[in-house]
Design a protein around this nucleic acid. Structure first.
Lengths: 346, 346
DNA sequence: TTGAAAGCGCTAACAT
DNA sequence: ATGTTAGCGCTTTCAA
């Protein structure tokens, strides 16, 4: 790799001038600048960001920690962040916490050594402690909020989203509506649960705690929760399910199918977060869609704006809207024939 | 951020000793080592990798360039690489080329400045030129091969995979089998096409060039190609389709559905690469599955082995096997009633 | 507008 | 086994 010294030599200037021509062109005479640029081009010069970062004591790197890169929602978040960062000349160092506090901790420690300018994080349930180590670093919490004071967050309006999704079920006439909710130590789960409950109250549908099952955001959790709810006696069983994230929705749908329930004739399902899978499954799924790519972009813009000192906007809570997309997985509740009189039973 | 000087001071040793205690413990007395470790711990010391990298003239970073992080296959590749790298104390700098040579070029240039130890790349069609700039860097080509001499590649056995997938269709009795193939300047497409052709030859089924449609790996390409093939007159139309990648398969399935064709009664489909979508669509899709996660892991292991000088294994071509998973999207060809004699036609 | 020289934090060569 | 010192490649005073 050619060094700036070689560029300087070829352009017949000092390294200082070469550096200025490359990084702060306005400080250098036009003719000189062009000589240097040409020399750099000819040599295929690429600045050593280690040396530059060491000297300037800061880099053009931002860290991004997501909890599951295999989840298409998170992949979209990451792409949004990356595309926004690239446009402003930043690079993204991506880590996966796999929802494990320990991996999150490790990612943070590793990141620290790279002197990132800022951090965007989808926090795990233990993020409050983990993030202490870098409390000084400009930071945006994405998708979920830990509630730490003064921290910028970029999320969707989960309460309204869940409320609209649940209200859709209530309007169809459902009165036994179940929910499969995420970990209640994570903000999205709490807020979606709140929206769920609010919609029931508004619609005058009773909230039944026994129809609310918690899970850990994975497909298997959704499956297990759904099996439990759908195995209840017919009179207690929910006729509709509101599921708190995309992975658990997959599990719930598969569980319903394997129990022989038809969607939406026997069971209506509303999922949170759209996906290709939701669009192409049979029947296509009614969902509360989130603007995942825009969330990532927004988080990155916000972070970079804070870095560049565009006013003291730090600590803002940006909420993007969700959108209810009604497809074919929701319909009116089944009309159950009343059980035959006791005398006629076998 | 505390520097090593502070650690050294607290442990009452020189910075050199502190550095050794941290990086090469065997060179230091046990008691000293423990004092230093304790001091580092107490201060929350994290080495500045910029300074270290600058001094050692190499880092613990490997670059990874994939062509589409939103494609679950690539997300799995990336996760495999990352997990393998992390276990050996390496960090991964992930870039997305979006199948665009220019973005690939930019990723390579950016990466260069970070002095990565090595690079794992899913090459675009222009990779041969782009990669020249870093020909000296240890490198593994993943999923696809550019054919540059001496370069290590980690791929699946595409020829056999495509051959087995196509043979499955031939065995079911199909004689008009179409293929939707990727860009023919990318190795996977060429090899899968070769396997397709080989299977037809073996089965004695005629290869019909007019039933082979190229695409650019995207869902939309698959849709367009399928619409074309399935709009042919019944006597020319394929009764089975072999599709060269996962995204195009989605498009092909949606096209078939929108044309009112039943799968597999009217049309059999075999896709390349498994996915959740393939498992949960209706009917579940027969696929040639690839071990994506293992591909990523293998590529990373291979690269790190080369870095550590574990023999001169560079230039190897590692091929992992595929697996035909027969689900419900394939069946015997439709029995078309012979067209009525001309005399009876209206 | 340009050049000389110092120094970012770390590790490795050399000295003890 | 430990300390002293030079230097990785760059940017940024400071001086001219």
């Amino acid at each position: 790799m050619p060094r700036i010294e070689e560029v300087a030599h070829l352009a017949k200037v000092s390294t200082a001038t070469a550096s200025r021509a490359l990084s702060r062109p306005e400080m250098v005479a036009i003719a000189t600048r062009e000589r240097v640029l040409k020399a750099a081009q000819d040599l295929g010069y690429q600045p050593n960001v280690l040396a530059r970062g060491l000297r300037q004591r800061e880099t053009r790197i931002i860290g991004l920690i997501v909890t599951d890169i295999l989840n298409p929602f998170h992949a979209l978040l990451a792409k949004g962040v990356q595309d926004a960062a690239e446009r402003q000349g930043y690079n993204v160092f991506l880590f996966n916490s796999d929802e494990e506090p320990q991996k999150e901790r490790h990612a943070i420690d590793t990141l620290r050594g790279h002197l990132p300018r800022g951090l965007i994080v989808v926090p795990t349930s233990a993020a409050r402690e983990n993030l202490q180590a870098i409390a000084h670093l400009p930071m945006v919490e994405l998708d979920r909020a830990t509630g730490r004071p003064g921290v910028t967050t970029v999320t969707v309006d989960n309460v309204t989203g869940a409320c609209v999704g649940t209200a859709h079920l209530a309007q169809l006439g459902h009165t036994r509506i179940g929910m499969i909710v995420g970990q209640l130590d994570i903000s999205t789960a709490v807020e979606r649960h709140e929206g769920f409950r609010k919609a029931l109250d508004t619609a005058g549908v009773p909230y039944r705690p026994e129809l609310v099952m918690p899970g850990h955001h994975r497909e298997e959790d959704g499956r297990r929760a759904a099996v439990h709810l759908l195995s209840l006696p017919a009179s207690l069983r929910p006729t509709a399910l509101f599921v708190g994230n995309n992975e658990m929705t997959v599990g719930a749908v598969l569980a319903a199918q394997s129990l022989g329930l038809r969607i939406p004739e026997d069971l209506s399902i509303v999922g949170f977060d759209d996906s290709r899978w939701a669009q192409t499954m049979t029947p296509p799924l009614t969902v509360v869609a989130q603007p995942a790519y825009e969330l990532g972009m927004t988080a990155c813009h916000q972070l970079l704006a804070e870095l560049d000192g565009h006013d003291a906007i730090s600590g803002a809570h940006l909420q993007l809207p969700t959108e209810l997309i009604v497809r074919r997985s929701t319909g009116p509740p089944p009309i159950r024939p009343p059980p035959p009189p006791a005398a006629l039973r076998p």
